[in-house]
């Protein structure tokens, strides 16, 4: 595929950073890219995939519910629509979400990824950190920026773990969906965005 229409979930968060990364990835791959900010259900039309940025998942859910966007997007994702979620985006895509260590498990906004994810698993901003990591089959080394990041606690069999840190998965793939608990869009390395564009190119979902 030489022309890709990509959506950026625009409810809240680090939207422009993903825009810049995916733009540079498309340029490197010689793909003509059209970027659309997704705020309402009708914004999903004609898209080949969507990126869900980092931010506050509670704030995103609140706005997404009101307009019916969450339901419309959930239907597409359940049919195999490609998605790439970072941090809050990864939380939205998880089947099982824990608000904190003691809270009960609830369903994510798009319960697709067979994993249990703990919000702010590493702690507060004072515990935010950066570490150099490889992502198997994608990049040899990336500066992984974890900001009030969630921890993926348990994963099901359908899920492929492509990167780990401290014994926990930090980058996963299930079918057409990839998710990271860190922020590739802040690393200056567009490898993950290239990988996502390749998933879209090879995808049969229309």
């Amino acid at each position: 595929m030489k022309e890709i229409n990509i959506g950026l979930l625009g409810l809240q968060g680090a939207i422009e950073e993903h825009e810049a990364s995916v733009r540079s990835a498309a340029k490197a791959l010689g793909i003509q890219l059209d970027i659309h900010t997704v705020l309402l259900p009708e914004d999903l039309e004609g898209l080949h995939g969507i990126i869900m940025p980092g931010g506050e998942s509670t704030a995103m859910i609140k706005q997404g519910k009101k307009s019916g966007l969450l339901q419309a997007l959930r239907n597409k994702l359940e049919d195999g629509f490609p998605a790439f979620g970072t941090c809050a985006g990864a939380i939205l895509l998880s089947k099982r979400v824990k608000r904190d260590a003691h809270s009960e498990i609830t369903e994510g906004a798009f319960p697709i990824l067979d994993q249990t994810i703990l919000r702010n698993g590493y702690g507060r901003q004072k515990d935010s950190f950066a570490v150099k990591l490889p992502i198997r089959g994608i990049v040899d080394e990336i500066e992984a920026i974890f900001i009030r990041a969630p921890i993926i606690e348990k994963t099901g069999e359908e899920l492929k773990v492509l990167a780990e840190f401290g014994g926990k998965p930090v980058f996963v793939q299930q079918g057409n969906i990839i998710a990271s608990t860190f922020h590739p869009e802040l690393s200056g390395n567009n490898g993950v965005h290239k990988y996502f564009l390749k998933i879209i190119s090879e995808n049969t979902y229309q």
Partner: peptide
């Protein structure tokens, strides 16, 4: 700096 400025980026559009 990346971690500090990155935190601020996560509250954008909010």
């Amino acid at each position: 700096t990346n971690l500090k400025r990155g935190f601020a980026k996560m509250v954008k559009h909010g």
